[in-house]
Simulated assay, not measured.
Amino acid sequence: MYLPQQFRNTDSAIAQRIMREHPLASVVSVGENGFPVLSHIPMHWQAVSLWGENAPEHGVLLGHCARANPQAQLLASKPQALVSFMGPQAYMSPGVYADKQRVPTWSYLAVQAKVHTRIVDPHEDRDRLLKCLIADHEPSYAKQWRELPASYTEAMLNGIVAFEMQITDLQCAVKLNQHRPEAQAAMHAAYAAGPANAQALARWMEDIGLVPPAPVQG
């Protein structure tokens, strides 16, 4: 992705946080006709392989899609893919600057990962992968899943293609006007008073030290 140096972030903890807090990723493969094929797939990041093997430096992503999705066959035949995560994002008004010779822009956090895909075939491994996603989003559902009839769970598992993606390269963009410190306080105030996506950016500005943390109420 286009990534100016001032917005390039190399803190692995920040990239991991973005992937965990915003798990719905865009998975891009190259189709048979050379045109990109894209699917929106929830992903689970973890530091180690599903099989306990040594993972690459940036960890692995676990996910699945419908067996009928053409991307499933592409990931099996062409394991290289691109996975993109979009974190909080919002418009930024030039009004945060004291001078008028400014233009509007957009603030955002994003992660882009190059991956090598490994299809998860055995039934028990697919079940284990699903439990990782359940643990992320609704841990209490694990009990309900275990109590469902085997005929039903097997049919559900047979209807998906599950995969583990080893991250071979990782880029993280944190575009929060770091190169314009004179406007950061005004930008933070504007975002803190805005809608939920803008408020999320205000919290990120606090978390990475661009502005002091907001005082605790009460």
Rank of each mutant, 00 (worst) to 15 (best):
P4N: 06
P4K: 05
P4Y: 07
Q5A: 15
Q5N: 13
Q6A: 11
Q6F: 08
Q6D: 12
Q6P: 00
F7A: 09
F7G: 01
F7P: 01
R8A: 15
N9P: 08
T10S: 13
T10E: 15
T10L: 12
D11H: 13
D11A: 14
D11R: 15
D11W: 03
D11L: 08
A13I: 04
A13L: 14
I14N: 04
A15I: 05
A15E: 05
A15T: 04
A15P: 03
A15D: 06
Q16C: 10
Q16N: 13
R17W: 07
R17A: 15
I18L: 14
I18T: 02
M19N: 08
M19C: 13
R20E: 12
R20A: 14
R20D: 11
R20H: 11
E21A: 15
P23T: 11
P23H: 13
L24E: 04
L24P: 00
A25T: 09
A25K: 06
S26G: 14
S26R: 05
S26Y: 06
S26Q: 13
V27M: 09
V28A: 12
V28M: 13
S29Y: 01
V30W: 00
G31C: 01
G31A: 08
N33I: 00
G34C: 10
G34T: 09
G34Y: 06
F35N: 09
P36H: 07
P36Q: 08
V37C: 04
V37D: 03
V37W: 01
L38V: 15
S39W: 02
H40F: 09
H40V: 04
H40M: 09
I41G: 03
I41V: 14
I41H: 01
I41P: 00
M43Q: 13
M43S: 01
H44K: 12
W45Q: 06
A47D: 14
A47P: 06
A47V: 11
V48Y: 10
S49A: 13
L50A: 14
W51Q: 14
G52T: 13
E53T: 10
E53Q: 15
E53H: 08
E53C: 02
N54M: 11
A55N: 05
A55M: 07
P56Q: 11
P56W: 11
P56I: 09
P56K: 13
E57V: 11
E57P: 04
H58K: 12
H58I: 02
H58R: 10
G59C: 08
V60G: 02
V60F: 12
V60S: 04
L61A: 02
L61F: 08
L61Q: 02
L62N: 00
L62A: 03
L62E: 02
G63C: 08
G63V: 07
H64I: 07
H64M: 09
